[in-house]
């Protein structure tokens, strides 16, 4: 398989996942804001931090109010992480790899993008917003299902899957980081107002509430939620599980030794994290380390498969 094709499928996987995760995040925050009393400080700003978009966001908008944040994250073309931009990027990557993916997937993604482009701006208000976000989430799920159900297992499928799971792991660590910073900030024992409802919302933004209840069997509390989202072996959005998927996919590709070893180390790091690492100071450091490691893993995959660096090659463009 051509390196370019592999890279485009990888990014398509990442961007599709990003669109879906962003839609989930906005959806859950909308519900959370509805549930909390009006005078609770918590609002929309944390979403900007989750996306690491403080710089560009505050350069464009005076304050992180609901309308501004939702507009920025749904349909702002200048925000490379908005739902619209993510779908656009996914589509651009799929456009040139159409001969490798089922034709239906191209049509569905095209439809979904057209929908987001025409409806996004109209879906900032709460009522329309819910319908819009649900449609985006459904669309992304449909595409994931199409790939799983109709695409032959081979390098193309593996690269899309690696992209999806790396993006998912990345998003989960971001959500844990930002939410726990505000929620674990209080010394233990001190009562955080509406703490439970907020931790539930963290789980819900990752569609993890129901699975958490089934597996953890305790009332929702901070440490257990963090443990579940980082270390659970079977929940598909837990970081450990995502990395396991990446490891399996890599195992089917040629020349996987270096990137695969990297994933194994990363899994070990997460698996070995103990209670003290999951406390508030330790957690922030751990998440920082994980994010750096995820970035490095991406670099490894890129160097191994996408650059096509050849010992005989003398072209300069490959250093880019």
């Amino acid at each position: 398989m051509l390196s370019r094709v592999a890279e485009r499928l990888y990014w398509m996987g990442r961007y599709l996942e990003r669109a879906e995760d962003t839609a989930r995040l906005i959806n859950v925050n909308t519900h959370l804001v509805l549930d909390l009393p009006k005078d609770t400080a918590l609002g929309w700003e944390p979403l900007v931090f989750i996306m690491s978009a403080e710089g560009p966001f505050f350069a464009r908008y005076p304050a992180a109010g609901e309308t501004e944040v939702v507009r920025y994250m749904v349909g702002d073309r200048d925000n490379s992480c908005s739902i619209l931009s993510s779908l656009h990027q996914a589509r651009e990557n799929l456009r040139t790899t159409r001969d490798v993916v089922p034709r239906e997937a191209w049509e569905k993604l095209n439809d979904l993008y057209q929908y987001a482009a025409s409806q996004g701006e109209k879906s900032i208000g709460r009522r329309a917003r819910f319908t819009f976000l649900t449609h985006v989430i459904d669309g992304c799920q449909l595409l994931a299902g199409l790939f799983a159900g109709t695409m032959s297992r081979g390098p193309g499928y593996d690269f899309a899957r690696i992209g999806r799971n790396l993006e998912r792991a990345d998003m989960t660590t971001r959500i844990i980081d930002v939410r726990s910073a505000s929620l674990l900030a209080h010394a233990s024992g001190e009562l955080v107002p509406f703490e439970t409802i907020q931790w539930v919302s963290v789980l819900k933004s990752l569609s993890g509430h129901q699975m958490y209840r089934r597996h953890v069997h305790v009332r929702v509390n901070g440490e257990d939620v963090v443990w579940f989202l980082l270390q659970d072996r079977s929940f598909p959005r837990a970081v450990y599980h995502c990395l396991n998927e990446v490891q399996v996919s890599l195992g089917k590709l040629p020349r996987h030794e270096v990137p695969r070893r990297h994933v194994a180390r990363l899994k070990q790091q997460i698996g070995n994290a103990g209670v003290e690492d999951l406390s508030r100071e330790g957690l922030h450091d751990l998440i920082d380390a994980l994010q750096i490691a995820l970035g490095r893993l991406h670099d490894r995959i890129r160097a191994t498969y996408f650059l096509g660096d050849a010992p005989v090659a003398r072209s300069d463009s490959m250093a880019a």
């Binding site: 040629p254 498969y305 005989v312 090659a313 072209s315």
Partner: peptide, 15 residues
Amino acid sequence: CVGDDDCVYMRTIEG
């Protein structure tokens, strides 16, 4: 890309 051996190569995931 063209190698030092003047042959043409395509970049693939196998090298």
